[in-house]
Write a protein that binds this DNA or RNA. Sequence first.
DNA 1: TGCCTCCATCTTCCATACAAGATTGAAGGC
DNA 2: GCCTTCAATCTTGTATGGAAGATGGAGGCA
Lengths: 240, 240
Amino acid sequence: MGEVLQPVEEAVSDTIASRVVAALREEIVTLKLKPGDAISESDIAARYGISRQPAREAFIRLAQQGLLLIRPKRATVVKKISADGVRQSRFIRESIEVEIVRRVAGAHLPETKEALKAIIADQEAASEIEDVHGFHELDELFHRTLARLAGVEYAWQLVDDHKIQLDRVRYLTLGVASQKRAITEHKAIVAAVAAGDAAGAEAAMRAHLARAEVLLGQTIAEHPDYFEAEEDEPAEGETV
Amino acid sequence: MGEVLQPVEEAVSDTIASRVVAALREEIVTLKLKPGDAISESDIAARYGISRQPAREAFIRLAQQGLLLIRPKRATVVKKISADGVRQSRFIRESIEVEIVRRVAGAHLPETKEALKAIIADQEAASEIEDVHGFHELDELFHRTLARLAGVEYAWQLVDDHKIQLDRVRYLTLGVASQKRAITEHKAIVAAVAAGDAAGAEAAMRAHLARAEVLLGQTIAEHPDYFEAEEDEPAEGETV
DNA sequence: TGCCTCCATCTTCCATACAAGATTGAAGGC
DNA sequence: GCCTTCAATCTTGTATGGAAGATGGAGGCA
């Protein structure tokens, strides 16, 4: 299972700080807190009716997850999205998921085909009734299931942690039409995997993930203020 | 450069907590703090002559890195090494590094060959004078340089963060003879990359990384107490 | 008008005190 | 002798007060 090795999100139990982490994380991904927004320990403490200490610890954890930027003695801001960072997150994801489908294709497990097809069927149903949130969750389940079949569920955990960078971009581009294309691509992946065609599965997965590239350019054009300046130097002399 | 997106190690500047993180991290990797050892905030605070607060924040960060396990209201212990976690860290590393050498082989950059050959030459020198630490650092530089040439240095950052799990294992098996083999394998990688042979580079990289597998089994046999019980269930009902 | 200086006010960082759950071992009853 | 119970003493979690640095605007000066 999720077992062992930094679950990154929650390495600790049910505490005030943990709840604040979850709440802020949600606000950041859904852009209720926008990239560049400044928040302070006192703000958050007052807002949740707690003391500054748990708020501070939440900041630390979110900073490690790359969502906040703590500028010592100055302020803490919601990190702007880095185009290069998004590209490299995608690189990481593609590297790992390609390796995953290869493994699954080579393993010839009996339950593979049925498990994946069931998820796709649910996705089609969710798409019918325009359940955006449900569709999103099923998409996640599809990829996590592949990881499980490959025996590397923790590796997916990692991809998932970094996917949050991609998720903020995706939240800006809620393409409803793209759901049908995603389903088609999922089917192609399953077909190749079930046939034991590793090369075909790899190609299908790469095609599936390639879409994000165009979305990124499009999003930068529409919301340039949410992204970091694309210079070579870190712009400000901040601690990174 | 290192730019953006959770540098995971240090998302914050020069502070007491940061220094404690670095110090403890070092002690954990070098096994001065052994897997299973219990430490407390008060211990560390007293040891470094600071208050509990910075020590506590250091714990939080190290827990997120998967090096500590915080058991609320009970104790904080150095996390035992998980054999499955090590395997999956290796999986992650192989996935990403294979993709990297493919890219570099396909890019045909002029400086590639010289840069890598220079590092290998330094490694041979370090091996001659039995500079173990220097050799280790050059090995790291070799792989990081490949990532830089591929334009995904941040992705290497990620591998590096997870490599710490492998490093604890490696610290237990300081094979001097294996240095020569590592150098030979590095040369094979460079040869394939410089020739633009993506498939050959991939194969060479996989062969290079495969060695860790045998080391793991060997190490578990020698130091079973440093590893987690290999059951299916998390053994204790702890928060993971 | 334009520039420099200083101070009120913000921020994060650290120290300290207290609260509450978990553990351990000893004392008491059987 | 063995089991149960409970209390002293660990642990981490939270609250609060103060310190040091950074910021920005007001006010003085050329």
